[in-house]
Amino acid sequence: MPCTGKVDVIHMLRAFEAGVDGVYLVGCEEGNCHFLVGNLRARKRVERVKKILSSIGLESERLQMYNLSAGEGTRFVEIAKEMTEKIKNLGPSAIKLKKEKLENPA
């Protein structure tokens, strides 16, 4: 995506529908958006999807938004590790488990 502002609610929901265990959006630092408010819009959409996930009993922690600049490679690695750890602790998503059960009924 050219900007997190282009990420819509449905893109995140479709990822969960596909059975992913977690999704995180990485946008530019707040106040540094080339399109002014793209990352702020993304954050609001992330909050909406978190509410949707909670409303149907899925863990909202599976979705996260982070902000950092393109020059912060080390921080990016930290975030990736943090998110991976969080998802590992949560375990596979209920949707993924149901999909696997459907594909391998034995």
Binding site: D8, I10, E17, I56, G57, K99
Partner: peptide, 21 residues
């Protein structure tokens, strides 16, 4: 259209979770 997509996706997720697609 956007809300149709979001609601449909939410319903599918909820029903899939309940093992009742």
């Amino acid at each position: 259209q956007k809300e149709v997509e979001i609601l449909s996706s939410t319903i599918r997720l909820a029903r899939e979770k309940e093992d009742n697609p």
